[in-house]
Design a binder for these strands. Structure first.
Length: 325
DNA sequence: CTCTCGGAGTTCAATTAAGG
DNA sequence: CCTTAATTGAACTCCGAGAG
C-alpha cells in the first residue's frame, strides 16, 4: 500500500501558509515549485541568489500539552540528505516557530526507533525552549525566508538581477497552456519523474522535472506555436530577456497543427543556453523556425525529437541541483 | 561535593483515523 | 467492519542547576 498522503484539512492549509509566507517575505528571491504528482516531496524552492534548487518536506503536527511537538518520521521517507524538513505546529498560534533542518542533521539528532521492523526517526521538543539542542534549527515564522536564503532578504535581492524579479507577463493563452499540459502529460508517463510547477507563476521555467532516482532536475520552458499553412513552419518566439543560460533549463518547442487539432509528433528539445545558436534574433525576440517532419537539413536538426520519447529524453537532461556544475 | 528537583528528550502503549 | 498505520498521551530516563 502506498503511504497515506495527508492531503486536505489543516495540514494542507498550513503548507500553503508557509508557501505564501515564503513568497511574500523573499520578495522574489525564492521561487516555489509545488508538486503536480506527489511522491513525497512537498515542494522545491528555487533560490535565486545561487540558483540552487532545494527540496522541501513539510511536517505539520499538532502541539502537545505544554507546546511540545512530537515529530515522528518514517526512516524510508527520508531519502535525500540535502532536503530540508520544515516542521510546524498546525494550530494558529502567535509568534509561530518552525523547525528547519536538513534531513542529514535530523537523522543525526533524532532518536531512531524500531517498531515491528520499521524504522522511525523521532524527536520531541518544545517550540519555545531555550535550552533545547534543537534551538539552532528553530526559526521564527517571520524569518523563514532569511533562513532558507541563508542571508538577509535585502542582501539577497542585491545579488539578483532585477530582470529575474519582474513577474513575467503572462502571454495569455490557450495554446501556451495546452503546450504545458501536453508536456506534463507526456512526462507523467514516467514514474521516475516528479513534476513541479512554479507557484506563483513567475519563473520562466514552467515545469520542473525531478528524477526521483538520481535526484537530478531539469527545468523546462514550454513553447508552442501553430504551424502556418504556407510554409509548414511553426515560429516559436522567445523573449530574449526571459532566456536563461542555466544548464539545467531546457526549451521544449511544440508545433500545433490546426487541421489535426493536435501537436505534431515531432518536437524540439533544446538546452536553453544553446537557443541563441539556432534562433534568429530580431530585437527583443528570438525566433526559432520549426518545420516538423521536414526533410530539409537545418541547424535545429540535432534538437528534433519524437514527442512520444520526451519523458525518456528528459531523464538525460537532468542536472545536479547546483546550476552550472 | 553530593543530593534533589525540574525541564528536556526518549520510549512505549493506547487511541484514533483511514482505506479496503 | 476489519486491518493497518499515524497520532496522542504518558511514563520513564537523562542531565544540569542550585541548595545544603
Amino acid at each position: 500500500m502506498t503511504a497515506r498522503r495527508d492531503t486536505g484539512g489543516p495540514g494542507q492549509a498550513m503548507e500553503f501558509e508557509v508557501w505564501s509566507d515564503l513568497i511574500k517575505q523573499s520578495k522574489g528571491a525564492l521561487h516555489m515549485f509545488l508538486p503536480l504528482l506527489d511522491r513525497g516531496l512537498d515542494a522545491v524552492v528555487h533560490r535565486m541568489t545561487d540558483r540552487r534548487y532545494i527540496a522541501l518536506q513539510v511536517k505539520g503536527r499538532a502541539a502537545g500539552e505544554n507546546g511540545r511537538v512530537n515529530l515522528i518520521v518514517p526512516a524510508d521517507s527520508l531519502v535525500d540528505d540535502d532536503a530540508l524538513i520544515l516542521a510546524s505546529v498546525i494550530d494558529d498560534i502567535p509568534n509561530q516557530v518552525d523547525l528547519v533542518v536538513t534531513e542529514r542533521t535530523f537523522k543525526q539528532m533524532a532518536a531512531l526507533e524500531t517498531v515491528k521492523g520499521k524504522h522511525f526517526f523521532e524527536a520531541a521538543f518544545a517550540m519555545h525552549s531555550v535550552r533545547s539542542r534543537w534551538l539552532p534549527f528553530l526559526v521564527p515564522r517571520a524569518q523563514l525566508a532569511d533562513r532558507i536564503l541563508e542571508t538577509s532578504i535585502a542582501l539577497a535581492l542585491e545579488r539578483i538581477s532585477p530582470d529575474l524579479l519582474k513577474p513575467r507577463e503572462r502571454h495569455a493563452g490557450w495554446l501556451g497552456f495546452l503546450g504545458e499540459a501536453e508536456v506534463i502529460r507526456r512526462l507523467a508517463e514516467n514514474p521516475r519523474l516528479d513534476l513541479f510547477r512554479p507557484f506563483p507563476d513567475l519563473e520562466m521555467v514552467e515545469v520542473l522535472a525531478r528524477d526521483n532516482v538520481t535526484r537530478r532536475l531539469a527545468g523546462l520552458q514550454v513553447k508552442a506555436a501553430t504551424v502556418t499553412d504556407v510554409h509548414g513552419e511553426a515560429q516559436i518566439h522567445i523573449h530574449t530577456a526571459t532566456l536563461t543560460k542555466d544548464l539545467s533549463t531546457w526549451v521544449v518547442g511544440l508545433a500545433w497543427r490546426n487541421e489535426a487539432n493536435a501537436f505534431d509528433e515531432e518536437c524540439l528539445l533544446i538546452p536553453a543556453a544553446e537557443v541563441p545558436t539556432v534562433a534568429t534574433a530580431d530585437g527583443l525576440l528570438m525566433t526559432i523556425a520549426f518545420r516538423p517532419a521536414s526533410p530539409q537539413r537545418t541547424r535545429i536538426d540535432p534538437y528534433r525529437r519524437r514527442l512520444a520519447d520526451l519523458s525518456r529524453l528528459i531523464l538525460d537532461c537532468t542536472q545536479a541541483p547546483f546550476a552550472g556544475t
